[in-house]
C-alpha cells in the first residue's frame, strides 16, 4: 500500500507498460505445480509481505506497483532467495485504466495462465477535519475503486469462462460507515466492498472465489498518516497471514485483525442520530 499523504496528486504518468527484463518463470509441471497470481499494489506494506508469502507457498507472481525501483528490489529478493524466477515486476499506475487490457494479456502470457488476482492498490489522502479536497477524493476513487474495477472486471470475465480462479480485494473497515474524517476514502472503500460482493454473487456459481478483506489499522506507511488513535494495529505480516489463511479456506469476507468484525458490527448499528454527533 502506498500513501504519500503529503503528496498532492500529480498528473498521471502515462508510460506504456514495461516488459519483463527478468528471466522466464520456471514452467509448472505436475510435480512442481505453480499457481499463477497477480498482486496489484505490491511494492510495500501488506502487498509486499503477501507476495513473499505466496511465492513460498508455490505461486509465481506478477507484482504491480507504480514505482519500479521498489518492485525490482522485491523481485530480486524473492528470486534470489528461491533461486528461480518466481516474481515478475510490472510498473503501472492503477489509475491508468487504458493500460490494463494489454498489460493483463502480457502478464497472463508471461505467467503461463492465471489463478489468482489480489487487488491491493490503495491511496489515502485525509483532507483534514474541516477541509474539503475534491482532487484528493477523486484520486482515491480513481485508484481504490475504479482501478479495482479496471483490473477485476476483465479478470472476472476470464475466471467466469475458465470456471476457476480466486479474486482477493483489499477493502477496509473504513468502507463500513461514512465518517467525519475522510468521506472520499470511506466512499472508495464502500464502493469496493459492494463491487466485490457483486462479483462474488456473480462468480461463486461458476466456481470462482471472491474474498473481501477488511483490514483495520495496519502498521504501514499509510498508518503514519492516520490522525488520532490507532487501536488494534497489526503488522503487515499478521495481515498477510490472515489473508493467506482465508484464501486457502476460500472464505468470502474477513476482517483483520478479526476483532474488527465485532467492532464494526457495533459501529454499523449505531443509529445515525448518535453517529452524526460522534467525532469518530
Amino acid at each position: 500500500m502506498r500513501s504519500p499523504v503529503s503528496d498532492s496528486p500529480k498528473p498521471f504518468d502515462h508510460t506504456p507498460p514495461s516488459g519483463t527484463p527478468q528471466g522466464k518463470p520456471a514452467p509448472a509441471t505436475p510435480l512442481t505445480p505453480r499457481r499463477r497470481g497477480i498482486i496489484v499494489g505490491a511494492s510495500e506494506g501488506i502487498g509486499a509481505v503477501l507476495a513473499q508469502k505466496l511465492v513460498k507457498e508455490g505461486y509465481t507472481l506478477a507484482v504491480i506497483a507504480r514505482r519500479k525501483s521498489k518492485l525490482k528490489t522485491l523481485c530480486k529478493e524473492i528470486n534470489s532467495t528461491l533461486n528461480e524466477t518466481r516474481a515478475l515486476a510490472y510498473a503501472h499506475d492503477a489509475a491508468n485504466y487504458d493500460e490494463v487490457p494489454a498489460l493483463l494479456r502480457k502478464i497472463v502470457a508471461d505467467l503461463g495462465g492465471l489463478d489468482l488476482i489480489v487487488f491491493m492498490a490503495g491511496i489515502n489522502y485525509p483532507p483534514g477535519l474541516n477541509n474539503y479536497n475534491f482532487e484528493g477524493d477523486r484520486k482515491m476513487v480513481e485508484v481504490n475503486l475504479i482501478g479495482a474495477m479496471a483490473w477485476l472486471s476483465p479478470v472476472a470475465e476470464m475466471f467466469q469462462n475458465a470456471k476457476a480462479g480466486q479474486i482477493v480485494g483489499i477493502s477496509s473497515v473504513a468502507g463500513d460507515r461514512g465518517r467525519i474524517a475522510n468521506p472520499g476514502y470511506n466512499t472508495s472503500k464502500a464502493g469496493l466492498t459492494t463491487y466485490l460482493e457483486a462479483l462474488r454473487n456473480r462468480l461463486s456459481r461458476h466456481g470462482v472465489n471472491v474474498l473481501t478483506v477488511k483490514p483495520g489499522f495496519v502498521k504501514t506507511e499509510m498508518l503514519k498518516a492516520a490522525q488520532g488513535a490507532t487501536p488494534f494495529a497489526i503488522t503487515p505480516e499478521k495481515a498477510a497471514d490472515d489473508i493467506y489463511k482465508a484464501m486457502r479456506q476460500r472464505k468470502q469476507l474477513i476482517y483483520t485483525a478479526s476483532i474488527w468484525r465485532w467492532i464494526m458490527l457495533i459501529i454499523q448499528h449505531v443509529p445515525s442520530v448518535i453517529f452524526r454527533r460522534m467525532s469518530f
Binding site: 509448472a28 505436475p30 495462465g113 476470464m158 475458465a162 476457476a164
Partner: peptide
C-alpha cells in the same frame, strides 16, 4: 474464450 484446460492425468492445468 478464456478456458481452463488440463491434461489426461488431471495432474496439470493451465488457462
Amino acid at each position: 474464450t478464456f478456458t481452463q484446460l488440463d491434461n489426461f492425468g488431471h495432474s496439470l492445468s493451465a488457462a
